[in-house]
Amino acid sequence: MSPARTVASTLITVAPTGAESAKAEVPALPTTPEELVETAVACEQAGAALIHIHVRDRAHQPTLDPVLLKEAVDGVREATDLVVQLSTGGAVTDPLDQRLTVLDADPDSCSLTCGTTNFGDGVFLNPWGFMVELYRQAQEREVVPEFEIFELGHVHALRRLLDECGLPFGGKVHVDFVMGVPGAMPGTPEVLLAGVAMLPAEVTSWSATGIGRAHLPVLATALSAGGHLRVGMEDNLMYAKGQPVSHNRELVARAAEIATLLQRPPMSTTEARAALAVKDRRAR
């Protein structure tokens, strides 16, 4: 089992927007720069230490526009002490070469999905050559990757990446299990525990998120098994049956409350930066 079993606190990541939900259908989704910064501030206060950002354009559509990516990173960094992580997945239709440009926005961290997977009606492409190029660029630019696992086979790909490319900048290896995506691995305790048991010895921490109805079972299992949490409207639009999420802070606050009850209180941003070994890019 992962050495993360011994941790006393919980890293809470908030993924506030994603690339799938439409603003017209989910008005509470933070899609403008102002809404993103307001969300970041509120979620930091509620217990989040890391924010996973997908950017939208002025028409609320997913974008990898470099100006908007940099605006998002700078805005959140100026307003909070959160670890700022950019998605390199974008939307499933974004071309691979454009996804490689995300690091130009100088985030603290980036997602690195460890393989191709079915994603609803689409396919989320992450071929081996792309993964290696993204990893090497992250090493060169001193950006800490978060290795995203959508399928149990992706754990094997992570092993291969570490063997071929070595450790990330800072030497820490953080993994996030994304569970319950239609077409990918289910969001059940049994599958999560199987994935954790497969993790390479180099892994220093792991988190998990459950899509939709898998949200709370995955959250409870992750906390019980020594893992960390990702919550947010990218993954879950319902707080409870018949009760839509009105703000990402609700999901962060509930995660923080449950973690505290289980004597795994939320990490501070300072603790998170140390745990992930991120480079300090904040202005002094």
Rank of each mutant, 00 (worst) to 15 (best):
W206S: 10
P62D: 00
P168G: 11
Q243W: 10
T32L: 00
M238K: 13
F177I: 09
L29A: 07
A49L: 05
L68D: 05
A208Q: 02
E34G: 06
V73H: 02
T260K: 03
R254P: 08
A197K: 13
I53H: 00
G89P: 03
I53W: 01
L251G: 03
A42N: 08
A283V: 12
A240I: 09
V92F: 10
G227L: 15
T32R: 03
D176V: 13
V83Q: 09
S205G: 15
W206A: 14
P62L: 02
L167I: 02
A49S: 15
V231K: 01
P33V: 03
S9T: 10
P200W: 10
Q139D: 08
F169N: 15
S268C: 03
A4R: 00
L216C: 03
Q45L: 11
P66H: 07
L100R: 08
R273F: 06
T13R: 00
V231C: 01
D57P: 09
T204S: 13
S205W: 13
T93I: 09
T270N: 11
T93N: 07
A272M: 04
D57E: 12
A28S: 07
L193I: 08
D235W: 10
T10L: 00
Q137K: 11
E78F: 10
A274L: 13
H156A: 15
P217G: 12
Y239E: 01
P30E: 02
L152W: 12
R136F: 06
G75C: 04
A201W: 06
N118V: 12
H174Y: 15
A42F: 08
V123R: 09
L36I: 00
L50M: 14
H154N: 06
A194H: 15
F130T: 09
